[in-house]
Design a protein around this nucleic acid. Sequence first.
DNA 1: AATACTTTGTTTAATTCTTGACAAACTGAA
DNA 2: TTCAGTTTGTCAAGAATTAAACAAAGTATT
Lengths: 215, 215
Amino acid sequence: MSKNSISNSVIRRLPRYYRFLGELENNGYVRISSRELSEKMGLTASQIRQDFNCFGEFGQQGYGYNVSDLRQEIGKILGLDKQTPMILLGAGNLGKAIAAHIDFRNKGFDLIGAFDINEELIGKEIGELKVKSVDELSSFCAENKPVAAILCVPMQSAEKLVNTLIECGIQAFWNFTHYDLKVAHKGVAVENVHLGDSLTTLSYCLNNMEDKDKK
Amino acid sequence: MSKNSISNSVIRRLPRYYRFLGELENNGYVRISSRELSEKMGLTASQIRQDFNCFGEFGQQGYGYNVSDLRQEIGKILGLDKQTPMILLGAGNLGKAIAAHIDFRNKGFDLIGAFDINEELIGKEIGELKVKSVDELSSFCAENKPVAAILCVPMQSAEKLVNTLIECGIQAFWNFTHYDLKVAHKGVAVENVHLGDSLTTLSYCLNNMEDKDKK
DNA sequence: AATACTTTGTTTAATTCTTGACAAACTGAA
DNA sequence: TTCAGTTTGTCAAGAATTAAACAAAGTATT
């Protein structure tokens, strides 16, 4: 009731706003107008104003927006002031790279565990974490109460694993498998990544550029 | 003129159609109706029919679509019948994982080279490739004519590198850096991935689920 | 061959998303 | 303090996307 449901289009733009505002802040910007931001981001000023207004009135007429304040507000909206405990499932190439590459702390999460089924990987270190066997999953969750999970396992294992994880209390999935995770259970958030689809899209764009150029 | 410009929304759904049709084919499906496909994919049948119709009439009244034929048609539209030569820039954790994890051949590409600036990585093997120094980039491109590039370098290096690559003839970028790659040059395709934004979106969804459940 | 059923391609309607426009509110300089 | 200039928040128009509806064309069964 407090907010009559934000549209998906707006939500998908929020992380980008947050990122740009961070850069602006680093570059010493104290204030910014929707017009100037629109030029930097390649959007319309109108859209920016309307997007921000979904969440409240953060600007001031004749002045614009305070960069730092606005960034902090959006951060709060995105839940980046929290540190939700998260675990990694699948410590192969991709899982390892994600764990190393992502700045979890600044994205609202805290990576507290990594699991794999492969004997060769168990015991190996990923950053500060030691890879554990999935056999330890239930007991680990009971004790440490992770709320989110990264899925970097083969597609075949995914569906069963997801059910186990939900039973263990996981409420958010960052899914890198080729499997389209459906939100069967209410109260579970899913973000499907599908790198393959992304590359396929690039293929389309590359191969159909001439068509667009002609027009 | 042949196709009056396909909308972005449609394009982004194509890889997913292709993926689902592949699964159906593997599971022995010979034909499928828009209604049945809509149930499996969580879309409306109407949308599916309209999407396919952007590219031609692939179905048959009273019968539906031939799974194999339709998949092949969509594959052709996506350019998956080609094998565009591609190179990897940045052979760190993420670059290595991407190179190992993605099935390039079935996504319209062929990974033919990997480059890094880090002495420690140069010479190491990634799959069947040996990591080369960026010093060799120009000569390699002159000889092997890659058309696409994966960017897994730090944000600071990205902008300069992109210009070099465009001079070397690269026309498509799969960008994993935190830098928002702009299509300054015409005739260059860009797919920005932004894993950080994806995780941030998950944070939002997790933290704002109650709002949605209430309604 | 005739008939009931299915399903597409396409038109029309509804919804959602984006852009344009402007009054109200503030800034900053004189 | 006043006044010109700036910029927001918001409303309304416009565009794009999605969904519904249905005739036309096929299938399959009798």
